[in-house]
């Protein structure tokens, strides 16, 4: 039986490569990007204050649940859902397996020698298979955040536009693009079919699948833009609520 080559032929070990480009740059940027978002969002979620200003509600705290029996930040009641969606997302999996687990750190670059590897077949990574359930929850969040964006245009019952209204609208838009470009959604909406032409339902599914496929090609882009908008929306509302900056009213 033919075999693969043993690892002893060429030099191996973490970071070993003949590549001459800056292969390390991408994992470093991912560690910086995801790391700084992780630190800020954890801090912001634990604060439990300054999450609303006028008609604006921070996306970290929406939907807002206030219960007498819950003594911690209300963000902790809801943030597990979008966190789960991103943690099991097919794009982020690539990003953190490379950047945080160095498995592999980059293409054709050596890994830690002789470490156990079971991919996504064993706990905890076998849980990546429940991504579609987090997608269902994330889709509900899009409707809630879209309503928040609509509410952000009504100041004491009067229509108006503030910078915060635009920030929350952009946030809902980009989170929507990220959520509905999801690989699981692409499968569920039509990708599961083998035949797209045998009935009218199949033809409709083909059209939606084609649209989702176009969005899906930019899934990484939507993932990063929406990560920035959701973080920025919280920062903006927090700074307004703390009185550090003033919301500029356009109308």
């Amino acid at each position: 039986m033919a075999r693969l080559a043993p690892n002893t032929m060429f030099k191996s070990g973490l970071g070993t490569t003949q590549r001459k480009d800056n292969w390390w740059l991408q994992p470093v940027l991912v560690v910086f990007g995801l790391g700084s978002f992780g630190i800020y969002s954890t801090w912001a979620a634990l604060q439990g204050n300054h999450y609303a200003f006028g008609p604006y509600l921070s996306p970290f705290y929406s939907p807002l649940f206030i219960f007498d029996w819950w003594h911690w930040s209300p963000a902790l009641l809801i943030l597990w859902a979008p966190l789960g969606f991103r943690a099991t997302c097919y794009y982020y999996r690539k990003a953190y397996y490379r950047a945080f687990f160095a498995d592999p750190p980059a293409c054709a670059v050596g890994e830690l020698a002789e470490h156990r590897y079971s991919g996504e077949t064993k706990f905890p990574f076998i849980l990546q298979n429940i991504h579609r359930f987090f997608f269902y929850l994330a889709a509900i969040f899009i409707f809630i955040l879209s309503y928040d964006a609509y509410e952000a245009f009504w100041f004491d019952g009067h229509f108006g536009i503030g910078v915060g209204s635009l920030v929350l609208t952009a946030n809902a838009l980009f989170l929507g693009l990220y959520t509905f470009s999801c690989h699981s959604f692409r499968h569920l909406i039509g990708g599961k079919r083998d035949c797209f032409s045998n009935c009218s339902l199949a033809k409709a599914q083909y059209k939606t699948w084609s649209i989702v496929s176009i969005l899906n090609q930019r899934h990484m882009l939507w993932a990063w833009i929406s990560l920035c908008t959701v973080g920025f929306a919280d920062v903006y509302i927090r700074l307004c609520a703390m009185g550090i900056i003033h919301d500029i009213r356009i109308i």
Partner: peptide, 15 residues
């Protein structure tokens, strides 16, 4: 064929 071993790091697509 153990598809679960793939951790979708996309090097195959890159090359």
């Amino acid at each position: 064929f153990h598809i679960g071993l793939c951790n979708i790091t996309k090097c195959c697509t890159e090359v």
